[in-house]
Computed example of a mutant assay.
Amino acid sequence: MLRPSTLRLGTRGSPLALAQARMVRQALAAAHGFDAEQVEITVIRTSGDRIQDRPLSEAGGKGLFTKEIEEALIGGSIDFAVHSSKDMPTVLPAGLVLSAFMEREDPRDVFISRKAKSIAELPQGATVGTASLRRQALVKRLRPDLKVVSLRGNVETRLRRLDEGVADATLLALAGLKRLGLVEAATAVLGIDDFLPAVGQGAIGIETRADDAHTRQMLAPINHADTAHALACERAFLAVLDGSCRTPIAGHATVSGGLIRFRGMIVKPDGSEAFETKREGTVHDAVRLGTDAGAELKSLAGPDFFAAH
């Protein structure tokens, strides 16, 4: 049995990030039979947490939620980092790897409104608050008349701002609401066929130094293989498209019985045009399938597809 003296876990400080960090800590403790307190949680404030006055797409993209945590990991002040996988850049800093994934939670988005039961029932010209270009594009694809306004902050902040009337509706990840015990806040759950999730949505990724064999060995028992295969496919798809917060890209893979099914989509920010594709194969081909799907959409869309934003 492997026993740590103390393992140091790095995470953002939002209620959701801390809930996810505690989930990983409990899983590690259960897998190895030690006290959860032997995993020390270190809260690291990231650029993404500090910058609240503009969309991340304007501030530098999703790496803003991982940069300082990854610097701590490279510097050795933490042993591993816990992230929401959808916040992870496609290219990791040299020397860092995603070593494990917790079993994926429900990846769907939810619609939340005090004024309507669905996107379809929102009044003409209503406002939807979101900081996600993917959600914006998919909303505009369904309802071109709706106005999208930027809504940043953690889950609780966004729910409060909805109550304050900043927007008529918002969209959040169901996984986050479940982990926070806030599922009752959802007005409606959006089906994957109609509203394709972000790459990595619902999956907790655990990042380590590539040369830290001990920590990687500690994490191995809590890695969920099917989730890891699905994420390998999705992230390969994203990597080809150079996806960041600046580009409305959706992609979701499911794994069952050693088979992987993937659907990917790119959408213009105003929802006016979209391309999508599907792939199917064995989990051993996960990266190839995602790469191939990304290459197809890149070819179909052409170099100017995202230029409008």
Score class of each variant (00 low, 15 high):
residue 126 A to R: 08
residue 77 S to E: 15
residue 260 I to C: 02
residue 69 I to A: 03
residue 78 I to L: 13
residue 273 E to V: 04
residue 47 S to I: 01
residue 226 D to P: 04
residue 197 P to W: 06
residue 231 L to S: 05
residue 236 A to K: 06
residue 200 G to C: 06
residue 146 L to T: 05
residue 140 K to M: 14
residue 210 A to C: 02
residue 2 L to I: 14
residue 203 A to T: 08
residue 60 G to I: 13
residue 78 I to P: 01
residue 260 I to Q: 06
residue 85 S to W: 05
residue 218 M to S: 03
residue 283 V to S: 04
residue 127 T to G: 14
residue 42 T to Y: 12
residue 35 D to N: 08
residue 84 S to N: 14
residue 22 R to N: 13
residue 24 V to Y: 09
residue 79 D to C: 02
residue 8 R to H: 13
residue 180 L to V: 08
residue 109 D to N: 11
residue 307 A to K: 15
residue 166 V to F: 15
residue 180 L to M: 10
residue 63 G to S: 15
residue 224 H to M: 05
residue 53 D to W: 07
residue 253 A to R: 03
residue 123 P to Q: 01
residue 210 A to W: 00
residue 70 E to W: 12
residue 261 R to D: 13
residue 104 R to N: 05
residue 245 C to D: 09
residue 4 P to S: 10
residue 84 S to W: 03
residue 239 A to I: 10
residue 96 L to N: 01
residue 279 R to W: 07
residue 269 P to V: 02
residue 308 A to M: 14
residue 186 A to V: 09
residue 50 R to Q: 06
residue 204 I to P: 03
residue 134 R to G: 08
residue 302 G to N: 14
residue 245 C to K: 04
residue 308 A to I: 05
residue 181 G to D: 07
residue 72 A to Q: 12
residue 28 L to N: 06
residue 219 L to D: 04
residue 213 A to E: 11
residue 305 F to H: 10
residue 168 D to H: 13
residue 107 P to L: 15
residue 7 L to I: 11
residue 84 S to L: 08
residue 224 H to D: 15
residue 195 F to R: 02
residue 298 K to D: 13
residue 94 A to V: 05
residue 193 D to M: 11
residue 204 I to C: 01
residue 217 Q to V: 02
residue 273 E to K: 07
residue 204 I to D: 02
residue 205 G to V: 03
residue 5 S to G: 00
residue 245 C to S: 15
residue 234 E to C: 10
residue 238 L to W: 11
residue 188 A to K: 15
residue 222 I to M: 08
residue 269 P to W: 08
residue 283 V to F: 00
residue 271 G to I: 01
residue 285 D to I: 03
residue 113 S to G: 05
residue 117 K to V: 05
residue 24 V to F: 01
residue 295 A to N: 11
residue 73 L to Y: 03
residue 172 L to W: 01
residue 49 D to Y: 06
residue 82 V to L: 02
residue 192 I to E: 06
residue 261 R to C: 06
residue 280 E to V: 13
residue 108 R to Y: 10
residue 30 A to W: 07
residue 202 G to E: 04
residue 85 S to D: 04
residue 230 A to N: 12
residue 291 T to W: 10
residue 236 A to H: 02
residue 226 D to W: 02
residue 204 I to M: 00
residue 282 T to Y: 01
residue 182 L to I: 14
residue 84 S to R: 11
residue 260 I to R: 04
residue 86 K to E: 09
residue 128 V to T: 10
residue 132 S to D: 14
residue 208 T to G: 00
residue 168 D to E: 06
residue 9 L to W: 09
residue 22 R to P: 02
residue 15 P to E: 00
